[in-house]
């Protein structure tokens, strides 16, 4: 049963130095507030996993929380590059960042395998690309029925998955809708999970396109309205596109970034 606790308590309980942490949300429902709490608590040596390490991981990488990044697309969507990510990869600033790089289809299937309790997933992918040469979690595999060569990707089993959702009820059942990406798979693949929500309600009113995570597969829920800002929560908020544009200038320069980092205020929940 997921208990509902303040965000700071949930992060300090669930996220430890050296953990493998997956924060998912495919341009929608990105758990920014939880990411900021990880920065405030000064977690170090994390392996950060995310299909699209956009602005949220640029912030964690620039703050020095990460030792390793597992990902498939690292850009500022609709704007350009991630400058903190680039600085870490090209110059090792503020700390060197190892990378393990996949395609979206590969990452999605790695979460599926993790959720299904399998050691790997099979897909048609990576063949002929240089990604397969540099990424040890991609290997060819022969189909035992047809003899065809396919691609295997190793399962992802994060220590913690963190996502943002629209609602939870008081028992900690979680409801989300709109673009739900790979969040269900990430939570089911992880040993522990934290879901931040816009709203805690007495009863979850059913929606036709909903994804439900029952309370007993979620470790902790935290009530964090606006916790996806500057991304959006379908039905609650719009994407703050200006922030994504402003991030380009903030993140381009180390000192400018340090000034932004200093503005992270303690959460009240």
């Amino acid at each position: 049963m997921a208990s509902i606790v303040p965000l700071a308590d949930a992060v300090s309980e669930l996220v430890h130095d050296g953990d493998t942490v997956a924060m998912e949300g495919f341009t929608h429902l990105i758990p920014f507030a939880a990411g900021h709490e990880i920065i405030r608590q000064g977690r170090r040596n994390l392996t950060l996993v995310r299909m699209t390490p956009d602005v949220i991981y640029d912030q964690l990488i620039g703050a020095g929380c990460a030792r390793r990044l597992v990902f498939s697309w690292g850009g500022n969507p609709g704007v350009g590059s991630l400058h903190r990510f680039r600085d870490a990869v090209q110059n090792g600033w503020p700390v060197p960042l190892e990378i393990e790089e996949h395609s979206h289809a590969g990452m999605a299937n790695r979460y599926v395998a993790g959720a299904a309790g399998l050691p790997f997933a099979v897909l048609r992918g990576y063949v002929g690309t240089d990604l397969a040469r540099h990424t040890p979690t991609v290997k060819p595999i022969t189909c035992p029925f047809t003899g065809e060569t396919l691609t295997a990707v190793a399962a992802l089993r994060p220590d913690v998955a963190i996502i943002h959702a629209q609602r939870a009820d008081r028992a900690g059942n979680v409801q989300m809708w709109g673009i739900t990406g790979v969040q269900k798979e990430a939570v089911l693949a992880a040993s522990r999970s934290l879901v931040t929500v816009e709203e805690v309600v007495d009863e979850l009113e059913p929606r036709p396109d909903q994804v439900i995570l029952p309370s007993w597969v979620v470790t902790r829920v935290a009530h964090v309205p606006g916790g996806a800002h500057p991304s959006y929560a379908h039905g609650y908020s719009e994407r703050d596109n200006d922030f994504y544009v402003r991030w380009d200038a903030i993140s381009r320069d180390r000192e400018e970034f340090a000034r932004w980092l200093a503005t992270l205020q303690p959460t009240r929940s």
Binding site: T52, F71, S72, W73, G74, G75, S81, L82, F85, R86, V89, Q90, E101, H102, S103, H104, A105, L123, R124, G125, Y126, V127, T129, D130, L131, H134
Partner: peptide, 19 residues
């Protein structure tokens, strides 16, 4: 690859779309 001149965003969905 390990010491790139410019690090670009990466693959995203493109490899499988192209395939």
């Amino acid at each position: 690859y390990r010491r790139p001149k410019v690090r670009l965003p990466g693959a995203g969905g493109a490899p499988e779309i192209a395939a």
